[in-house]
Amino acid sequence: MELYLKYFLLGLAIALPVGAITVEMTKQGLKNGFMHGWAVGLGGMTIDGLLILAMYAGFATFLSLPYVQMPLWLVGAAFLAYLGYDSIRNADHDITPADEKTQKSLARTYRNGLLVAVSPGNLIFWVSVFGTVLSDSYNDSNPIAFALAAAGVLSGILLHDVGLLSIVAVSRRVLNRTAIKWVSVAAGLLLIGFAGYFVYEFITDLMAYIKA
């Protein structure tokens, strides 16, 4: 139980800083309600869970190779730039008032969560930082410790998502359509900003690789 609690708090701390997933969750939560925001979070957690399984299977070394990571920067930048552009272009669309039932598909917002999570920032974090932390809890004779640690981290992330979206759901009831539109525009600009950062990281890694 102590191991689970330790990694639960770690997962909560991981989720607190504002990142691309948080931006997309907030935007979808404001425009279409709690469930759509949570669908984004679940998309992100799906990738997190798959990465945990990949590390358990020994793929962390492969994912940490420079010639694997560098293309991921560009792929992630393309995904985030697309989502940012779409957020700005459709800022005034798909807004459902709090007292109406949304018509937008949950599968679509879940897909957005997957796209945001399949980014090099997320992959590299799990491989380099979280992979190192989890490796301390894993050994061949006691894989249950690894499972408890992974479950703790995912539970912490889940609590953060539910708490954030609860606040968003309350805020949605007092914001008008125009305010939500501009939140969507701001979210799009932030996503494009993350995309630009990924391109910068790609160039930096490429220059370092060439010099090496």
Score class of each variant (00 low, 15 high):
Leu51Thr: 13
Leu51Pro: 15
Leu51Val: 12
Leu51Tyr: 12
Ile52Pro: 13
Ile52Lys: 13
Ile52Asp: 14
Ile52Gly: 15
Leu53Pro: 11
Ala54Gln: 11
Ala54Thr: 10
Ala54Arg: 15
Ala54Lys: 15
Met55Phe: 03
Met55Glu: 08
Met55Arg: 15
Met55Trp: 03
Met55Ala: 08
Met55Asp: 10
Tyr56Glu: 06
Tyr56Lys: 14
Tyr56Thr: 07
Tyr56Leu: 06
Ala57Trp: 08
Ala57Arg: 15
Gly58Ala: 01
Gly58Phe: 01
Gly58Tyr: 01
Gly58Asn: 03
Gly58Met: 01
Gly58Thr: 01
Gly58Val: 01
Phe59Trp: 10
Ala60Arg: 06
Ala60Ser: 10
Thr61Met: 01
Thr61Ser: 09
Thr61Lys: 13
Phe62Trp: 08
Phe62Gly: 04
Leu63Gln: 06
Ser64Gln: 06
Ser64Ile: 04
Ser64Met: 02
Ser64Lys: 13
Leu65His: 11
Leu65Tyr: 04
Leu65Ile: 09
Pro66Glu: 02
Pro66Ala: 02
Pro66Asn: 02
Pro66Tyr: 02
Tyr67Ala: 07
Tyr67Gln: 12
Val68Met: 04
Gln69Asn: 05
Gln69Phe: 00
Gln69Asp: 05
Gln69Val: 07
Met70Glu: 12
Met70Arg: 15
Met70Asn: 14
Pro71His: 06
Pro71Val: 02
Pro71Met: 01
Leu72Gly: 10
Leu72Tyr: 07
Leu72Cys: 12
Leu72Lys: 14
Leu72Phe: 08
Trp73Asn: 14
Trp73Lys: 15
Trp73Tyr: 13
Leu74Thr: 09
Leu74Tyr: 04
Leu74Pro: 05
Leu74Glu: 05
Val75Ala: 00
Val75Lys: 00
Val75Pro: 01
Val75Met: 00
Gly76Ser: 08
Gly76Asn: 09
Ala77Asn: 09
Ala77Arg: 12
Ala77Trp: 03
Phe79Leu: 07
Phe79Arg: 14
Phe79Glu: 09
Leu80Gly: 05
Leu80Cys: 03
Leu80Lys: 13
Leu80Tyr: 01
Leu80Phe: 00
Ala81Val: 06
Ala81Met: 09
Ala81Trp: 04
Tyr82Arg: 10
Tyr82Leu: 03
Tyr82Gly: 06
Leu83Pro: 06
Leu83Glu: 06
Leu83Trp: 03
Leu83Lys: 13
Gly84Val: 11
Gly84His: 08
Tyr85Thr: 15
Tyr85Gln: 14
Asp86Lys: 15
Asp86Trp: 03
Asp86Thr: 15
Asp86Ala: 14
Asp86Gly: 11
